[in-house]
């Protein structure tokens, strides 16, 4: 039914993604499809890595760990954004196309009044992507 699952991850807050990661792994096993973990970073040093290449390395090991722990085929894909606070949604939408995913599994907070001003990334991606989107409510 699906060819490839994509999971946006924030390596700085990977701990908060447990439910989405588990959901993605379960779906991957069920449909026997690979999972691609996508991370967005900046050219400037950030809390996760000093350079984009260092970030790519960390993202790749994260994907390998997930693959080994869940017994699934896992890969990683990094996107560099100039201004990630704003460019996250277009970056994710482009990543979905670039890796050829048809199912997105992503974590999102429970909507609140701020979503009227700044829609959640999950909501925007679901609204614009051709892929199916599974928005996982964390905690």
């Amino acid at each position: 039914m699906y060819k490839k699952i994509i999971v946006p991850v924030d390596l700085a807050h990977a701990g908060k993604l447990a439910k989405a990661l588990k959901t993605a792994a379960d779906l991957a096993r069920h449909y026997q499809v690979p999972v691609c973990y996508v991370g967005v970073t900046t050219e400037t040093p950030g809390s996760v890595a000093h350079t984009p290449k260092e970030y790519a390395g960390k993202l790749e090991s994260f994907a390998k760990e997930q693959g080994a722990a869940n017994g699934i085929e896992a890969s990683s894909h990094m996107v560099v954004a100039h201004d990630p606070s704003i460019d996250l949604d277009p970056a994710l939408l482009k990543a979905i196309d670039d890796v050829g995913a048809d199912l997105v599994v992503m974590a999102s907070h429970v909507p609140n009044v701020a979503d009227y001003l700044w829609p959640s990334n999950g909501g925007t991606v679901a609204g614009r992507s051709k892929a199916s989107v599974f928005v996982v409510r964390e905690g």
Binding site: T42, G46, S47, D83, S85, I86, A114
Partner: peptide
């Protein structure tokens, strides 16, 4: 603190 990906409400 040098982060360029801080939440939008701050800017």
């Amino acid at each position: 603190g040098g982060k360029v990906d801080a939440p939008v409400p701050q800017r």
